[in-house]
Design a protein around this nucleic acid. Structure first.
Lengths: 193, 193
DNA sequence: TGCATAAGGTACGCGTCGTACCCTATAAGG
DNA sequence: CCTTATAGGGTACGACGCGTACCTTATGCA
């Protein structure tokens, strides 16, 4: 008969099982019994490690993907911005993004979870990438130095996020991304000259 | 013994009860049994009218407040925009807004409900108010005519929405509203000249 | 080899949704 | 005025999922 797993090994098995459940059924469909069964263990082992379902969900999401932050350098501000938006749009409209949205929804009424989420969502890294993009544009003379501001740099991602909140699951059309760049981001950067 | 209510009268009683539960406990705390008990009826009467909890939640939210859309006219674009943002911020950070966020969260993975929400959330009315504001500014010569665009007009509200999504329950500080107007909205409008 | 620790197995309490069934008041129509 | 279809009232129940309790059993370590 098979060995009995413990410690790190068991923990990884649980996380893997939870991640699979997340991918297949989303956060709403991830049940503790399901994870336990899939991991070949029982709920005791889970609750000894995470206090509740949401905590496991967040940990498993983190386990699901180590998001490599892109840092496009197309040579123009417009190209860089579009590239960033398109990559984000792809990520968020994938099953992977659906899981993220489910978690965010679950955390909406639980501030504690929301902070947990934000810490691990890589939002800061994302913001830095946009600021870097603006700095390079400014160095090229493509943007006024006064435009290199956090509030300005984050506008496109904020708009994309809000667009997702309004629409349902499907991805945001590419025209919208182009509009965000051409009708908002670039005029805004220029308007600060 | 008291009359037995029917039709419209009973429906209103249920909606009133559901709205009270929403106000007191948020959407997550609104239970069907609770609403039935508070309305002095039973779940049959509810399920004969709404197919599930979420539908009742949305209907009750609508019943909770007939949102009079503000239409400030302070004489300057900056004043109008700030006023709109401040009103929206007040609304969303009130218990009333907490209910709305709870509903949105619940609807996040259910496209059908999301459209229901959007239809009744008055988002279109809100957009029109912002466009009207821009038009008046253009008429006063305070903004270029090219800035009167839907995508431009909706930017501040989108940013506020995204700000809410990032932070938890508490209201967005007034400085952020000022930043949205002074660092984004006004430069953007000017940048389109 | 003995023991503390942690995993396995299982059952349970609780809350909540949604459904079923049967009884009864009410309104509408002959 | 009486009958009958309709809809509300009462209640119980099945299903499901979370989180807990309790006991048994394997495993690593002293």
């Amino acid at each position: 008969m098979s060995r009995r797993r413990r410690g790190e090994e068991l923990e990884q098995a649980i996380l893997r099982a939870a991640a699979e459940e997340l991918r297949e059924s989303g956060y709403a469909g991830m049940t503790m019994d399901g994870v336990a069964a899939r991991a070949g263990t029982n709920k005791n082992a889970i609750y000894r490690r995470w206090p509740h379902r949401a905590a496991l969900g967040i940990a498993a999401y983190r386990h699901l993907s180590d998001d490599a932050m892109p840092n496009p350098d197309t040579g123009t501000l417009r190209g860089d911005a579009l590239e960033m938006l398109r990559l984000a749009n792809e990520t968020w409209s994938s099953p992977h993004g659906a899981v993220l949205r489910g978690l965010l929804a679950a955390a909406a009424e639980d501030p504690e979870l929301l902070t947990l989420m934000r810490e691990r969502s890589g939002a800061d890294t994302m913001d830095r990438a946009w600021i870097g993009m603006l700095e390079r544009a400014a160095a090229r003379g493509e943007a006024p130095a006064a435009a290199v501001r956090h509030r300005v740099a984050t506008v496109p991602m904020m708009l994309l996020r809000a667009e997702y909140a309004m629409r349902g699951v499907p991805s945001v059309p590419d025209e919208v991304l182009v509009e965000i760049v051409d009708e908002v981001f670039l005029p805004l950067v220029r308007g600060r000259g």
